[in-house]
């Protein structure tokens, strides 16, 4: 088991390198859990990223009572890791589709449950989020927590250090903004 303790403790002490390290840890852990699920749950090729993220948290953090600060770091990393997994996969599958090959069931097996979110939609969302990040990085982070780490409004607010009321406004605005952005000019 990768040592999350170290990653989180160093974050607390403000060591810059460990954010990246934490991300790598979480990324590896997510892929590992996903892979082991895939090999065990034969017949089911869909997994819920959110559950994966939560499982990863439980497994990495163990039974300790981490405070929300640690947790926020973790979920930030988890959202980014999950984003990479989902987006990479969407890109790969799209490339394969364009190349005429049949899309294989990938190891990640991360099928977001909502049918509305196909590969193209994920990619469009990610692109729009990039643009939002350029203008308002805090909101983009907040939205990523919601979309990729599956946090509720309340949790995402806590992890972003804003009040629930602000979170609600951020969410309404960002969502409309992204929607508009994704629809294209």
């Amino acid at each position: 088991m990768p040592d999350l303790t170290l990653g989180l403790n160093q974050l607390d002490r403000g060591e810059a390198a460990s954010a990246d390290r934490l991300l790598r840890l979480v990324y590896a852990e997510l892929r590992r859990i996903a892979a082991s699920r895939m090999s065990r749950e034969t017949g089911s090729h869909t997994l819920q990223p959110t559950l994966l993220v939560h499982d990863a948290w439980l497994r990495l953090a163990g039974t300790r009572n981490w405070n929300w600060r640690n947790r926020a770091h973790f979920y930030g990393a988890a959202a980014e890791a999950m984003r990479r997994i989902l987006i990479d996969r969407a890109r790969r599958r799209r490339a394969q589709r364009r190349g005429g090959g049949q899309a294989p069931v990938t190891l990640d097996g991360l099928d977001p449950a909502a049918p509305a979110f196909d590969d193209d939609r994920w990619l469009a969302l990610d692109e729009a989020l990039e643009k939002l990040a350029a203008e308002d990085p805090a909101k983009a982070r907040f939205v990523r927590l919601r979309f990729f780490a599956g946090l509720s409004l309340e949790e995402a607010a806590l992890a972003s250090g804003i009040s629930p009321a602000t979170a609600k406004r951020w969410w309404a605005f960002s969502r409309a903004w992204l929607f508009e952005e994704m629809r294209g000019p």
Partner: peptide, 23 residues
Amino acid sequence: LAAHEKSADTLEPPLSISAAESA
């Protein structure tokens, strides 16, 4: 504003979260 109306239904995170954890 128009997007706000539509996005409420169509741009929700597709990932659900356990009720035990959500506020």
